[in-house]
């Protein structure tokens, strides 16, 4: 089965979201984020989380590739539970325990902690769907379609590519240290920070050399500030699915905005 490389990993060509343009997907990310941030309610936030989880399945994102993020989810749940137990003042009918510093545990404390976790994770899952089904070329085409200046498109594109390039350089430098028997992760905090300096100085020197090379390459290919009329080898396309996703997302944002305007919900719910 053929696959395509996105920002995060290879995805099967059968993934429907690979054929959706980046503007539609970004509108969907925005709609989910606005909805998640607008209402802090256990049921509502759980529904949004389930919706974004379903999006990941529809996008055919391999579960094994999400291991790191799922660990993060578990870690965050533990952290939020501890924080809300020790340092929150969520009102409720029954106060189970009051701490000497004034915070307390009520019957609503854990529900609130879970709602916040669902809220954050629904936004992260939809962003994951975007990153795992989108290439840097898609983003550049979308930015160009939105008529943003080419300099900005170039800046974003080169930044995204640089992360991948310098990740390899970073690993090479670390491997060079390991091959000499130096483990930079050993020792106390100060020792490890000092080790960090010795690893990052070569990376910065490599980077500074590459800046001049890339600048020379870009300028020799005609890149200049404020350039207009740039053409692209790939074409930006609108399919029926794009129209459907964009229209649905804009509608969802509009509904939330109207409800917020009528005072029926606050755009950002303060948790304290």
């Amino acid at each position: 089965m053929s696959s395509r490389r996105s920002f995060l990993f290879y995805l099967p060509e059968t993934s429907p979201f690979l054929h959706v343009n980046a503007i539609s997907k970004l509108t969907l990310v925005l709609a989910v984020s606005v909805a998640a941030l607008s209402i802090l309610d256990f049921g509502f936030n759980l529904v949004i989380l389930l919706f974004t989880t379903a999006l990941l399945f529809v996008a055919r994102v391999p579960l094994k590739n999400l291991r790191m993020w799922l660990y993060g989810f578990a870690f965050m749940l533990i952290f939020l539970t501890i924080m809300y137990t020790l340092l929150s003042r969520v009102p409720g009918q029954v106060i189970y325990f009051t701490f000497p510093w004034g915070t307390f545990i009520s019957e609503n404390t854990m529900t609130r902690a879970l709602s916040v976790a669902f809220r954050i994770w629904s936004m992260i899952f939809v962003a994951l769907m975007f990153l795992s089904t989108t290439t840097d070329t898609d983003v550049i085409l979308a930015l160009a379609k939105l008529r943003l200046p080419y300099t900005l498109c170039f800046l974003v594109s080169l930044s995204l590519r640089s992360v991948l390039i310098f990740s390899d350089d970073w690993r090479t430098i670390l491997e060079a240290y390991w091959s000499k028997g130096v483990d930079v992760d050993k020792g106390g905090l100060v020792r490890r920070l000092r080790n960090y300096v010795s690893v990052t100085i070569p990376l910065i020197v490599i980077t500074l050399n590459k800046v001049k090379e890339v600048d020379f390459a870009a300028e020799s290919r005609g890149f200049r500030l404020g350039m207009r009329g740039r053409t692209y080898i790939d074409e930006f396309q609108w399919n029926p699915a794009d129209v459907f996703i964009t229209a649905g997302s804009v509608l969802a944002i509009a509904v939330v905005a109207v409800l917020a305007f009528q005072g029926r919900l606050s755009v950002l719910s303060i948790a304290v």
Partner: peptide, 24 residues
């Protein structure tokens, strides 16, 4: 100049790497 744009983009990439792989 274009050099400043290239410099910013590449430094953003390096910072991205530092943030992602900051072991401490």
């Amino acid at each position: 100049t274009p050099l400043h744009i290239v410099l910013t983009a590449i430094m953003a990439g390096v910072l991205g790497v530092m943030i992602l792989y900051a072991a401490i």
